[in-house]
Design a protein around this nucleic acid. Structure first.
Lengths: 225, 225
DNA sequence: CGCGGGCTCACCCGGTTGGGGGATTGTGGG
DNA sequence: CCCACAATCCCCCAACCGGGTGAGCCCGCG
């Protein structure tokens, strides 16, 4: 599992594998760069200090794989990943992060990252992960794999007690999802604000939420599967 | 990566880890059962020939982990996984499959499987995977990891050129779509409430909205088309 | 005919939110 | 070297929101 197949095509040993690095902190950048080049079959062809620089120079460097710090000033690693994926759709990008900060993981994966590692990854593991991603794998920590897998469980919650809203409640929610305030909803439905509030209170109860934003999120995510 | 941490809590060596097996073909079932019990610290406490039997006897066997063949007659491994997850929510289930084709992978993950391995997995890797899943990981083959990761890319094909949120702003919005309050967002991102408010004010400006509900609606509708 | 449920409205209250001001630090571009 | 701007934090204040409680009206169903 995740043990990268020992490079199925044996003819790769010729040229070293070209790695590009994006990391804003100089010390870290240089030490990673040195580490990568210290692997016998790897070379760090490019070490960028910002997302802007990365988008500018990495396409010309034609790396085989890109290591990307997730937290960059201005253009985030997420945004940078997305832009690089447009320019180099077939070049795998592995995200690096200090902590596996929750939401970032999924944003990164959605932006096209092929792997997700912690900065404290041991050199041998880093090398294995680079080989893994180059052979079409998706290196990630156990913890992140678990969370990724867990996100699927939530995605398939059929057998839910399909909540049935009444006509008025549904109308109110639909207007909620348009961002209307209680007063605006009241006007649109020719109701008193208090009536709208009453309907929404019932909606909150039925959907098990406590705010309009949560209700909107809940309702919209159910309307799309 | 996927290399299961060597059992962080050292005190586990006492009792052998209890494995339950669900596999309809007798030869395969018996050989897997023998294989598992041959590991020094594992014992196969239960080998079921069908999903029905599994649902009936596995809860009583109280295994630490369940190995589930995905293709079973009548009740599929998917259905069986779902039912067992109801009865034993905290017992990890690892799916086994001959080929990693089709949608079965995703159905299995949605039904609550914690890992997904090929039957041709080498004994040492199987053992490592069992330890991985027991320590909270999610063992899977490189190929499956790649497909799982890829499924995320398709999920997020947004990008409205016109509006570009900064990294922090984007994080804040993502948490908004989970229905979090300013205070909860602040806690999750380790920021002051005032900072969150500041970020959100900028988001509102950029998205031309005036409330969190409207921002959620705007943001979510952009990422579904 | 009574009873529940949907729809309509009202009031109170404490907490949250949005919009308006700032201030400070650090960064990169010009 | 200066400016712009992201990011962090602070204060004020009016408005809004959510939760609780209650109360009429009308309809269908037993």
């Amino acid at each position: 599992m995740m043990t990268p197949a020992p490079s199925s095509s044996g003819a790769v040993a010729k040229a070293p594998l070209r790695v590009a690095l994006v990391e804003d902190q100089r010390d870290t950048r240089e030490s990673w760069s040195r580490l990568i080049s210290s692997f016998p079959d790897f070379t760090c062809v490019c070490a960028c200090a910002s997302g802007e620089e990365a988008v500018r120079v990495i396409p010309g460097a034609k790396p085989d794989v890109i290591l990307m710090d997730i937290f960059l000033p201005r253009m985030s690693g997420i945004e940078c990943t997305f832009r690089l994926k447009v320019l180099l759709p077939h070049t795998p990008i592995v995200m690096l992060t200090a902590h596996d900060e929750d939401e970032m993981v999924f944003l990164a994966l959605e932006s096209g990252a092929n792997g997700y590692l912690l900065k404290r990854t041991k050199p041998a593991d880093l090398r294995a992960s680079l080989l893994d991603v180059l052979s079409g794998g998706a290196p990630m920590t156990s913890e992140i794999a678990r969370r990724v897998i867990e996100s699927f469980r939530k995605k398939g919650p059929r057998r839910d007690e399909s909540v049935s809203l009444t006509a008025r409640e549904e109308e109110a929610v639909v207007l909620l999802t348009k961002g209307y305030s209680n007063k605006e909803i009241a006007d649109h439905l020719n109701l008193s604000i208090e009536t709208v509030r009453s309907h929404l209170k019932h909606v909150y109860e039925k959907l098990h939420v406590r705010s309009r934003a949560e209700a909107v999120a809940h309702y919209m995510s159910k309307r799309m599967e």
